[in-house]
Design a protein around this nucleic acid. Structure first.
Lengths: 219, 219
DNA sequence: GCCGTACCGTAACGTACGGTACGGTTGTTC
DNA sequence: GAACAACCGTACCGTACGTTACGGTACGGC
């Protein structure tokens, strides 16, 4: 029952094929029923039940399977300079907007949001949450904290998460909710680049050290 | 598309009672089936079908019904001063966070997001979109534009919507997506007040006129 | 050759739910 | 008070889908 292990080696290749087929059904908007999955993956329903228990188990396995491979590019661990930090934030924003705008992200977030409303058992919402906003902020906080220690950024100690969430807001704005609601918003690489640049510049305007009135700090 | 027919007089009182019952089911997380609604609203299924056509019609009517009564408080049409604008933005942010954090908003956004993924017929997503982020930005843009004309704010002409979306990001940040994904995030009036103040201050740091390098404008 | 295991394909079962039909009750109109 | 409309409650139909069961095939071990 408990599929606690979320390691990459959790499933065999054949099983991963089935999960990929499930993902494909979700992303392409086709209904994901046990029958349709068995047909799409050329496997037996009985096998699906044997492997994943029930439908909830299949969904969590699918979401986890996808989450396990959207680890962001590792952070540069070099010295913290203003330019390096700015470049990292920019790259971060580009990466994030690219992921958010992808069909897979939209489809999985929709699935998780829908389930967060009804299902209490298989909390896909928690999985997506931990691999989405929370993961982003967890990666961001050390960067920002290093920037603060290095005297590049200015916010109160312990407020790195507040700064990270502001950066999130500047980057994402209303894009994600609009995509989730079906707005035919297109995010070309050019626009992503431009938005990431704007958000990064805005962030430094708010939090760069050595200004008169940093508005990022708490009142 | 246009929510033209969304006047309050569209439904009789009894019909509005049924729609309220539907809303209550959605908000409380109970399944909204035609049978459960008939039971909850003490009416006949046949009557529901007669009034709303089918399930899709019922859902759109329900969503529209709720949308028709979250019109924000009217904007103050007085002269544009820095303090007045700041107060308006602050009030705006408080109002928006309060709405977003409400059970009704979360439940309806979940419903609309789920339907945007599958249903193509009754696009609840478009309705929620038009009464959510787009409505907010439509109300915001004239305020910001007036501020720009009055010399209070600084962004390129025609970029009022970009500024509005940045404000949206500063206010909402990751709150909405976390709520939709089931994060037990609590938004007390105190926290809302504080977040609205922070977002407003940050917005003015980015877009107030008479600074050295306003980072809000495009590059 | 024979068994156990793993798997595929498909039939079958139970249930939930959208949608329809119909009898019974209430209120209105003439 | 008869006719009629609106509505409630409920039984009913058809279908989709989760879940289970079962027959058939391939393969490795002995």
């Amino acid at each position: 029952m408990s599929a606690v292990e979320s390691g990459a080696g959790e499933w065999t290749e054949r099983q991963r094929d089935v999960l990929d087929a499930a993902l494909r059904l979700i992303v392409e908007g086709r209904p994901l029923t046990m029958t349709s999955l068995a047909s799409a993956a050329s496997c037996s329903k009985e096998t699906i039940y044997k492997w994943f228990g029930d439908r909830a188990g299949l969904l969590t396995a699918t979401v986890r399977h996808q989450a396990s491979r959207v680890r962001g590019t590792p952070l540069p661990e070099g010295r913290a300079t203003r330019d390096a930090l700015e470049a990292s934030l920019h790259r971060f924003a580009v990466e994030w907007l690219t992921v958010l705008g992808g069909q897979t992200s939209v489809a999985l977030n929709r699935l998780a949001v829908a389930h967060a409303g009804t299902d209490r058992a298989a909390d896909l919402g928690a999985i997506v949450l931990n691999n989405g906003p929370l993961a982003m902020e967890a990666r961001l906080v050390p960067m920002l904290e290093a920037g603060r220690v290095a005297g590049i950024l200015d916010f109160d100690a312990g407020d790195a998460d507040t700064a990270a969430r502001s950066f999130f807001g500047l980057v994402v704005r209303d894009v994600q909710i609009r995509l989730l609601l079906g707005d035919p918003l297109s995010l070309s690489p050019t626009e992503i680049e431009r938005d990431a640049g704007r958000a990064t510049r805005q962030f430094f305007t708010l939090f760069a050290a050595g200004q008169d009135r940093p508005a990022g700090g708490d009142s």
